[in-house]
Design a protein around this nucleic acid. Structure first.
Lengths: 328, 328
DNA sequence: CTGAAAGCGCTTACAG
DNA sequence: CTGAAAGCGCTTACAG
């Protein structure tokens, strides 16, 4: 198949490519091009099934109306929904998305970032696995349009959207105490330098009535089931009576392991960061700290587009959204 | 920020753009370019942080190493995992992905397809919501590289990968009978013309011992919870004693509604197409017909790339993979 | 061993 | 009201 080009339309109509381009980009009236000619151009374009080559256009214009999105793992419900929110907002504003996963692999993340920039994305929304802002300091220096979501860096002059993780974790632990829990334990996940995870741990520690009783299980992100199983075994013979999970993956693993191995968790009060649908239908009941996912996604796109449009006049923002306790 | 171009490297080294291009594309030795010169080029490229402009390259070469993926809804676990599988395989082979959701909106699907083609994707992996192959007949005629996944069309000469839905549904119903179910009902989802859904319904009907007792609840895809709730109410006062769900969304809704409304499903034997993790941890127990998601994704990418490479010599394939019954 | 030139398909000053 | 030309950044025959 040979795609029709501007030239094909121009030649078959006996006009110039420039005229065709103008008409098709809606600048016909503004440039005072004959209405009839405009009509003929549009008809011919339709007839030849003309589709503009966005790469030629991008090369010329320097913009591609494409936003890159990098998340740890889109098959994690949280990031799946986040991408959905981003996609809806982007689509409504005429932008396409290129979504990629890092699986917490920082080497892959580096490669993805340069790959995406190669592809001339206009900007990047990033939930980074990097342990420091240094990895992306270059982007900031080059003023590359970037918005950090979910995972942010301290003192980094780049747009960011996160939730009040420390507060949320505190709410969670206080909820456990309210429910009569005496000794709450925290299930966290590696890598712990991730800002969101780290803040939730701080929140847990800060909310403890007696911080000599702090107990953290650090589950490796790439062997959650095993890690959780080990932790549950240890827990069985202890007097810990409440669990705070730093994210939904951990909570799910606890449910599954308890089920598979037949651990009884009915005596255990459990609360998890991230509210996911299945918490409605499982037992034991799991309460949760719900994040405003759609707000995060929407704002990420808005900030990025504001940056495109306002250029130098864009004000860097650090949005921190509130979480909601969902009691079950 | 001004990105470095071939020209920048060439000028600062006093060589031609052509030479730089050759070296950077690994054709230096093949073309017998001085080793030292090659070294200098590579160093300068690194120093200037050179990133090739893929749009210029794509424009010139006519290929972009980008694959488009269109699915109904990436936040549905099945499609989330499918995209993950596709992404892993594509990434390993040096391709990028542009993923989009249709939310079963055929107008949006049309627009997405032309949008993606605008962007010069090399090929498309499509889980279509269209009710007929006519909508994409044009792609086939134009020999646009296309692979259908999950949802396919009869007598359509385009690569496709699906599972044996009819067989799978039969297995499911037979499982219900084996468990002592007398009258199994089928929860299906609109739009029912979707091949995978339709075949599962046919499988259900075909496996019934007494087809005068066929009972289908057709749940609208955009109000699943309500639809399921209505159906469950009707079911409460009936003698149906087994449920076959055509997909995981339905099964999840049944669990949630039963939980919220306090319906007792313990007497009910339930099986669902799609095996999702939460089935391990919910009650009542839900058995499932598991699809080989990773195989589907991997094969989709392989078929597409084979098509790129072999061009006219590529053999159209219709892969139909088997499902596995998971009993709980 | 290396360079000059053409051209991918588009948009945009510039000219008339 | 319309066209000719330049140029975005790249690759690839072609020439020497």
């Amino acid at each position: 198949m040979k795609k029709a080009s501007l030239k094909d339309i121009a030649e078959s109509l006996g006009v110039s490519k420039a005229l065709v381009s103008l008409v098709l980009n809606g600048k016909g009236d503004e440039r005072g091009i004959n209405k009839q000619t405009q009509q003929r151009v549009r008809e011919k374009a339709k007839e030849l099934n003309y589709i503009p080559n966005q790469y030629a256009r991008g090369l010329r214009i320097g913009r591609t109306n494409t936003i890159g999105v990098i998340v740890p793992d889109i098959s994690n419900v949280f990031y799946g929904k986040l991408c959905k929110a981003i996609e809806q907002e982007a689509y409504a504003k005429g932008y396409n998305l290129i979504i990629s996963n890092t699986y917490e692999d920082t080497q892959k993340e580096k490669k993805l970032i340069s790959d995406l920039i190669n592809r001339n994305i206009d900007g990047l929304i990033l939930a980074s696995s990097f342990d420091s802002k240094n990895e992306i300091e270059g982007l900031r220096e080059n003023k590359f349009p970037l918005v950090l979501v979910d995972r942010v860096f301290k003192d980094f002059e780049v747009d960011s959207i996160s939730v009040s993780n420390t507060q949320g974790a505190k709410k969670a632990v206080e909820f456990l105490y309210d429910k009569g829990v005496k000794k709450p334990v925290c299930f966290t996940i590696s890598p712990v330098y991730i800002s969101s995870i780290n803040e939730r741990i701080q929140g847990y520690l800060g909310a403890l009535k007696d911080d000599t009783e702090a107990k953290l299980f650090q589950i490796p992100h790439d062997s959650i089931e095993d890690g959780v199983n080990q932790a549950l075994i240890e827990l069985k013979n202890s007097d810990y009576d409440g669990i705070f999970c730093v994210n939904n993956s951990i909570a799910k693993a606890i449910l599954r392991q308890a089920n598979l191995e037949g651990y009884d968790l009915e005596e255990m009060e459990i609360i998890s960061f991230d509210d996911i649908e299945i918490f409605d239908i499982v037992s034991p009941k799991i309460s949760s700290i719900s994040q405003p996912i759609y707000e995060i996604g929407r704002n990420a796109v808005s900030l990025l587009i504001d940056r495109f449009e306002k250029q130098e006049n864009h004000q860097i923002q650090h949005l921190v959204l509130d979480t909601v306790l969902i009691e079950r």
